[in-house]
Design a binder for these strands. Structure first.
Length: 466
RNA sequence: GGCGACGUGGCGAAGUGGCUAACGCAGCGGUCUGCAAAACCGUUAUUCGCGGGUUCAAAUCCCGCCGUCGCCUCCA
């Protein structure tokens, strides 16, 4: 039973938007591929984190139960390599960067996924799934490794739109039956300092199997959404489908959702070296600007990272802050009217906001709805008949609720203004009353030197951070 | 070579068959202000990369071309 009003998300598998359907337990399960933790994460890695974290907030606000699971890959070639370079054990290195990933993404203030499984915690599940694949004839042990038998899985290539015949493997391997077969288990090599026992000898999981095993362990089979960066479509997600569906005979996930890449003269990527670290972007711009920057573009569009773009986002953020300030000013000196147009604008904006997000998580359109509401509010407050406190309070509260969906509720925080600046603002008022404008301007400059700006309003001066 | 995405005002970005092509930023003019700031009002694409075609009607569908980018190997 499909809910015709359910939010829709574009499905890479079917190339069209499809409704998000909760599982039998009523929960919308979302699995998102997280990073391999061999270094600090960059802004590109942050995009899926932000997009899917905000998606979960949205679904919850819409009254749906949503469970977000996002893994940390803490065992892989790059980790061995980085650990050797750093002169530490790979376990130590992965733990360190895993913790840094959590700390960096915590700064976004979007909450944590409900579960963040690590590969090293799911070895039994991984080994069991590999065994099932072998039992079903879809995998074979060879030379200490185990490979997936690609041509025995009929749907191979259905996600990425490839045919086995069209593909050329750059790593034919020596033990493989078919050049495109991929590793489920990699036999231990002498220079690898972390490995596990298995029925096929010591070693460690291949790259794709961990997500298949962890997603099923955390969300079961046939969960609602499997997400990640577009660059994961092939081979990672294609192989996940082969493994999970090969092992269970059931669909792994209903919707495969992929965010486009952040670009910095081409795709931002660690191996290309053209990266900006998330922590550096946060230091420079703050979380609200960064979230706004990400969400003002659709998640399925490429997003070039640029100072111009961030500055633009920064001004948008300032416009939102000013709107909340104006509402607060209005609430503290309210009028007596009930503004019909404002009331209508609220309903319209709210509906449009939710309709936009229902429509393939169209956050740019949701922002447009937000700004329509802001303009209506500003117009009412500065208009001839200011609304009464009740109406203004309800507008403020609704606006903050919408901001909160996007993770931007902090923009409604009160400005902390030091007493010194407030005192000078008072002195400036006295000077203005005495028409001593030279002194008034001097005091305004002095306040600016403290990092604050005076704005004269009909209700007296307001001091806000610059 | 194979697969795929995209090209909308100065910039960013919605819109994918039919209301005056949203919204944000920047600019310009105005209102307000002692001057500002903020805010509001007005203004900025007869037109949606280019060329054909389908249709009563296209930015939206089809064909061709040009350009940018991604995947095909580790990658969010």
């Amino acid at each position: 039973m499909t809910d015709p009003d359910a939010p829709r998300l574009y499905n890479t598998l079917t190339k069209r938007p499809e409704p998000l359907e909760p599982g039998p337990d009523g929960v919308v399960g979302i699995y998102v591929c997280g990073p391999t933790v061999y270094g600090p994460i960059h802004v590109g890695n942050a995009r899926p984190f932000i997009v899917f974290s905000v998606l979960r907030r949205y679904l919850q606000r819409r009254g749906l139960a949503a469970r977000l699971v996002s893994n940390l890959t803490d065992i892989n070639d790059k980790i061995y390599e980085a650990a050797r370079k750093a002169g530490v054990s790979s376990t130590e290195l992965a733990e360190r960067y895993g913790a840094e990933y959590v700390a960096d993404t915590d700064r976004l203030g979007l909450g944590r996924p409900d579960l963040e499984p690590k590969v090293t915690e799911f070895l039994p599940e991984i080994v069991a799934m590999i065994q099932t694949l072998i039992d079903r004839g879809l995998a074979y042990a060879a030379g200490g490794d185990v490979y997936f038998r690609v041509d025995r899985f009929p749907g191979y290539g259905k996600l990425s739109g490839r045919r086995i015949e069209d593909m050329v493997s750059t790593d034919p391997g020596t033990a493989k039956e078919h050049p495109l077969d991929f590793a489920l288990w990699k036999g231990h090599k002498p220079d690898e300092d972390a490995f596990w026992e298995s029925p096929w000898g010591p070693g460690r999981p291949g790259w794709h199997i961990e997500c298949s095993a962890m997603a099923e362990a955390a969300l079961g089979r046939g969960f609602a959404v499997h997400g990640g960066g577009l660059d994961l479509v092939f081979p990672h997600h294609e192989n996940e489908i082969a493994q999970s569906e090969g092992a269970s005979g059931e669909p792994m996930a209903h919707i495969w959702a992929h965010n486009e890449m952040i670009e910095l003269g081409g795709k931002m990527s660690k191996s290309e070296g053209n990266i900006v670290l998330l922590r550096d972007a946060l230091d420079r711009w703050g979380k609200d600007v960064l979230i706004t920057f990400m969400l003002r573009n659709h998640y399925r569009s490429k997003l070039p990272l640029s100072d111009e773009g961030l500055e633009d986002a920064s001004r948008q953020v300032e416009t939102i802050r000013n709107a909340v300030r104006s509402l607060d000013r209005g609430i503290s000196s309210p009028g007596t009217a009930v503004d019909r147009e404002l009331a209508d604008a609220l309903v319209r904006s709210r509906n449009e906001f939710f309709a936009s997000l229902d429509d393939d998580f169209n956050t740019p359109r949701a922002f447009a709805a937000l700004f329509e509401l802001i303009r209506a509010a500003n117009r009412a407050i500065d208009g001839p008949a200011r609304p009464d406190a009740g109406q203004l309070r309800s507008i403020r509260s609704e606006l903050v609720q919408l901001l909160d969906v996007l993770g931007l509720a902090d923009l409604s925080a009160e400005d902390a203004v030091p007493a010194e600046a407030l005192e000078m603002a008072g002195q400036r008022e006295a000077a203005r009353a005495a028409r001593d404008f030279a002194e008034a301007d001097r005091l305004r400059d002095a306040i600016a030197a403290l990092g604050y700006e005076v704005r004269d309003t009909p209700e007296g001066p307001r001091v806000t951070p610059l």
